[in-house]
Each structure stands twice: as C-alpha cells, then as structure tokens.
Design a protein around this nucleic acid. Structure first.
Length: 187
DNA sequence: TGTAGGATCGGCT
DNA sequence: GCCGATCCTACAG
C-alpha cells in the first residue's frame, strides 16, 4: 500500500491501465479502489490526443503521473492519469467507494446506494469533487493520493464504451466479477 | 464567426 | 431503449 511513484506511469499505457485495477485513489481523503479503466494514446482514433496537442488536451502531452481532467457533454468531468508515451493516458471509469462515503452522498445525492456513487467516469468525478481545477495537477501530491494494489487481482479485458471510433480495441480493463463496474465488460 | 458533436448520466417510455 | 441537458472544442466557411 505504498504511494505509486511517477516512474510507475512511465510504463506502456495499456500496462498501466491494467496495473491500476486494485489501486486506491483518494482526493482529499475521499475515494476508493479502482475497478475499471480504459487506455488511450495518440495513435488511437478514439483518443483526444489523436489530432495532436490542443489547449484542452495539453495535460496529455505534459508530465507523466499528472491528471488530465476534461469536461464532457457540457456537464460532467472525466479523470485520466497521464502516462509515458506522449499523448497517452488512462481513463478512470469506476471505483469501489471506501473512504468518505458520507461526503460522496452529500455531493451526489443522499438517497443513492453505494454501488451508484462511483460506477462511471462522470459519477466518480462528482463523488470525489474532481473539476477542471485539477487538470494538470501531479498525482503524487495533494489533494491526490494513489496507492498500489496490495495484492494481485483478477483482471479482464474488453471493448471500450461510449466511443464511435475504434471501440472494438480491447483497451478496457476491469476487476473480474466486480459489483462496482459501470457496465459489464464485453470482449 | 458559426456550428456539429462528444471517453456521460438520469429520467421517461 | 431513447432523449435531453449544457458547454466548449475543433473544424468548416
């Protein structure tokens, strides 16, 4: 359960996406265990970095081990971890809530079941209080805390979700049979 | 300068 | 399963 060093993110983005399953992410002490991720890079037509560096995606081309946060559909946010190859990042899609569940409910709605708090990229950003102010911020310092998975976990791979280009590429990773996934993982 | 569409979510049919 | 919310990026003209 040690903090993940910046060198961890230097690995191939698909390897990082897989290795993050089981890691613990908190923001100001609120968060839980990562159960679902997706990999993107500059050679991927579905990636924001595919068309090159712009003002929005600058963090994807910035320092490794920093956050790339963007707004989607005008109202939600998504969190990514920037990796070694320039323009590559891992989208964090779902968490098992562990810490600060009362605060998550304050932010997301007091009537929600625990399974609904972080079961999607937009949901977990709302629950953890992630916004554009965290774009480009280092994951190795506050408010972020990312810790290595204490033990190996069973990971399955499938096609990505919610994209129109290259969705069939097997770049979605999830904790096998986890009840905390955003959706079932389909190969 | 104008505008189509997106790595989503929740409510309604 | 479908649709609207809501904003800002990217690209066309």
């Amino acid at each position: 359960m040690n903090p993940l060093p910046p060198s961890f993110y230097e690995q191939d983005v698909d390897r990082v996406a897989r290795a993050l399953i089981g890691a613990t992410l908190t923001v100001d002490g609120v968060g839980g265990v990562i159960v679902e991720t997706e990999a993107y890079d500059a050679a991927d037509p579905a990636s924001h970095s595919f068309a090159g560096r712009t003002a929005r995606n600058a963090a994807m081309f910035g320092p490794v081990g920093h956050a790339y946060v963007y707004r989607i559909y005008g109202l939600h946010h998504c969190l990514n971890f920037v990796c070694g190859t320039s323009g590559s990042a891992v989208l964090i899609r779902a968490l098992e809530p562990r810490h600060g569940i009362d605060i998550m409910r304050e932010r997301r709605g007091s009537a929600l079941r625990v399974e609904q708090l972080c079961s999607g990229p937009g949901k977990l950003c709302a629950a953890l209080g992630i916004n554009l102010g965290l774009d480009g911020v280092s994951l190795a310092s506050r408010p972020f805390d990312v810790r290595k998975a204490p033990t190996a976990v069973p990971v399955i791979v499938g096609r990505r979700i919610g994209i129109s280009k290259a969705a069939e590429r097997p770049r979605r990773f999830g904790w096998k049979d986890s009840p905390w996934l955003s959706r079932e993982i389909i190969a």
